[in-house]
Simulated assay, not measured.
Amino acid sequence: MKKTTVFTGLVMLLGLASCKEHKEEKHEEVTFLVTNPIKKDTTITKDYVSQIHSIKHIELRALEKGYLKNIYVDEGQHVKKGQQMFQIMPNIYQAELQSAQAESRVAKIELENTQLLADGNVVSPNELAMATATLDKANAEVYLAQTHLGFTSIKAPFDGIMDHLEAREGSLLDEGELLTTLSDNSKMWVYFNVPEAEYLDYITSEAKKNNKDVELLMANNKRFNQKGIVETIEGEFDSETGNIAFRATFPNPDGILRNGETGSILMTVPFKDVILVPQKATFEILDKTYVFVIDKDHVVHQREITIGAELPHLFIVDKGLTENDTILLEGIKMVRDQEEIHTKTVDPVTVLSNLALYAE
């Protein structure tokens, strides 16, 4: 009985030792993928909230007081330059013009009579000069009356789209009263605010010299079918926000964009000779970003890095890494600092070409 117990115990010890050895062997068989950061030129796309405005957007107002006799256009209608849009009752101004024209004819007859008398030395040269001045004044009154009469017919100053009608036929209008607004949407001005640091990057780059192209992301999250060009930058920064306003001009041949819309400007920013690492290879501790660097003895070292910008599945590293470092690509949660591991190196170009796969 005693021999049987001893034998059983030995078997159990041998079994436990065998299991332990088997687990250790299994642990040693784990191989971690590692790679190198890659140094190359790249670009990122930054977006800025924007306001969209027509290249021309004006208010049409009544230039004379009177009743709104006719409206020849409708809301949302495309109008041509010179097309009549509104007619204010012209009766009073027509009568004023006729009166001024009559006064001009009388002054002209008086000047002709005075000229005959002056030629016969019957009147002095001063009287002739007075008659001439009277005619000039009468002609000026005619021109003024014609101008007032012209103000009763309101025409489009340029090709554009009408907005809401603010008055209806028969309304009594005061001088300066708003009738509608008119927008020229053939081109659109898109304004967006840029932080000071990004402004400095732009203003010192080649893109500034080449009138940098930008794209517009519309409110429906689709890209506008035309590219814009940054044409102007405002003269000073907003002291409260630290931003400065840029203006990009977009052609709008299909009339898709309208005054007052919103969207986002998409601007491509170039980066030269930057260090790129997969986001999968990084982790955060207390708002700081780290990677595991593997030394020549296959020992893991935790290292803090500074992120400069973010791309899909990639980080641009400002500080902390070089292209000669070896970093852990997968298994971040399975290793500890100062631990020795077995590794398999993956070419960084291969990693870049399979970013979506490694990000899963």
Score class of each variant (00 low, 15 high):
F158V: 06
P125L: 15
V194T: 01
D174A: 12
V122Q: 05
E127Y: 10
V194D: 10
D163E: 09
L135P: 00
M188A: 01
I154S: 01
L182G: 10
S186P: 10
K137G: 09
F158G: 02
T134F: 08
A140L: 12
M188I: 01
A140Q: 14
L178P: 02
T134W: 14
F151D: 07
I154M: 10
D159K: 02
F158W: 03
S153E: 14
G176H: 00
L178D: 06
W189C: 07
F158L: 08
D174R: 11
D184K: 07
S124W: 12
A145F: 06
F192V: 04
A167C: 15
N139I: 08
Q146Y: 03
L144Q: 13
K187G: 00
K155P: 01
W189A: 02
S124V: 09
S183E: 04
M130L: 13
F151M: 09
V122E: 10
T132H: 11
L149H: 05
D159M: 00
T180F: 12
L179D: 03
D159A: 01
A140W: 13
P125T: 15
S124Y: 00
V190T: 11
L172Y: 15
L165W: 10
I161S: 00
G150Y: 08
N126Q: 15
G170E: 05
T147A: 06
G160W: 03
H164D: 14
D184T: 00
L179H: 06
D159I: 07
N126C: 13
L182S: 07
I154W: 07
N121W: 05
D174L: 04
V122N: 06
E141Q: 11
G150E: 09
L128W: 01
A129E: 15
G176T: 02
T181I: 14
V194G: 00
L179S: 05
E177K: 13
L182D: 12
V142Y: 05
L173A: 11
E169T: 03
A140C: 02
N139D: 05
D174Y: 05
L173D: 04
I161H: 03
K137T: 14
N121V: 13
D136P: 08
V123I: 07
E177Y: 14
P157N: 04
E175I: 03
D174C: 08
G176R: 07
G160V: 06
T180S: 10
A138K: 08
E169P: 09
K137D: 11
L172F: 14
Y143E: 15
G176I: 05
D159E: 02
T147H: 14
Y191P: 09
L178E: 05
K187W: 01
D184Y: 12
A138P: 06
S124I: 07
A156L: 01
